[in-house]
């Protein structure tokens, strides 16, 4: 598929991908220098670097579709919270290591299936980006899956923390699979993935692993929604205030 220049739906979908990766990477970067031990500090940072790298690529693709000349940095640093399109789960504070790990695991499994599907996108630049990202997120998943198990099947404290993280995070996950009319249209055009299919396989795999880890799903809670439409939690504003500070305080500068 060519001639996407005037495709606001695709532009906006690419922003969803980019914003999701950037907010994940930004949160994970907060661990750098503060990890539970040195080896893990280095490993967490690698994942963060991968995610910010993915964001950079998706922003570039989005920028290419923009009607005015614009850069990846403009998109990352000069949009306000209501213009961000990530699901709320990725903007949540980093929490403890159990919380970070479980959140990462949810996103990693999602990313593996998402990029797998996107690697056959009819929009070639997206397919290429997805193929590259896929290699990395497969590794992320291997790591986080092992850690979820390691924490859940070890000490009482680690298990309690993991269980609490699951209670706190579970109802943020449905939002990962939300679509809107524009996305449904892109799906019909063969540009993006089938989110219903991803949802099914995600639930099969994640629930099986959680069961293996002897963790219990919560029965009810507030089901997060709104990120896709720019309706976010309170956390995103603080994250952007910090992240965008220099660009906002010194507009129009080179860095």
């Amino acid at each position: 598929m060519t001639g996407q220049f005037n495709n606001p739906a695709l532009h906006s979908y690419l922003l969803r991908l980019a914003d999701t990766s950037l907010t994940m990477g930004q949160r994970l970067a907060e661990w750098c220098g503060h990890g539970p031990y040195l080896e893990e500090d280095v490993a967490l940072t690698n994942v963060s670097l991968d995610l910010i790298g993915h964001a950079n690529i998706f922003y570039q693709l989005a920028a290419e579709l923009h009607e005015h000349p614009i850069t990846a940095d403009d998109l990352a640093f000069l949009r306000d919270a209501h213009e961000y399109r990530n699901p709320i789960i990725t903007e949540l504070p980093k929490g403890d290591f159990a919380y970070t790990t479980l959140k990462q695991y949810f996103i990693d499994v999602f990313n593996v299936h998402l990029y797998q599907a996107l690697s056959t996108s009819s929009y070639e630049p997206l397919a290429l980006a997805a193929k590259k990202a896929l290699m990395e997120v497969k590794y992320h998943r291997k790591r986080s899956e092992a850690w979820v198990e390691r924490l859940s099947l070890s000490t009482e404290e680690a298990k309690t923390r993991s269980q609490k993280a699951l209670f706190d995070l579970w109802f943020y996950t449905p939002e990962l699979f939300e679509t809107d009319a524009a996305m449904d249209e892109l799906f019909v055009q063969g540009v993006i993935a089938d989110y219903t299919e991803i949802k099914t396989i995600w639930h099969q795999q994640v629930e099986a692993h959680l069961q293996h880890c002897q963790l219990t799903l919560p029965e009810s809670g507030w089901v997060a929604t709104g990120g896709l439409q720019g309706e976010h939690s309170e956390h995103l504003g603080y994250m952007l205030a910090e992240m965008q500070f220099l660009q906002r305080a010194y507009p129009g500068c080179e860095w």
Binding site: A29, C32, V42, S48, I52, Y59, L246, W255
Partner: peptide, 24 residues
């Protein structure tokens, strides 16, 4: 590490993150 979350561009953020990671 202080400035990783506030680096002014995506590239600067990645470079700084990689550098601080190298130090670890």
């Amino acid at each position: 590490g202080n400035w990783i979350t506030r680096a002014p561009t995506l590239n600067r953020k990645m470079i700084l993150l990689a550098k601080v990671q190298d130090e670890a």
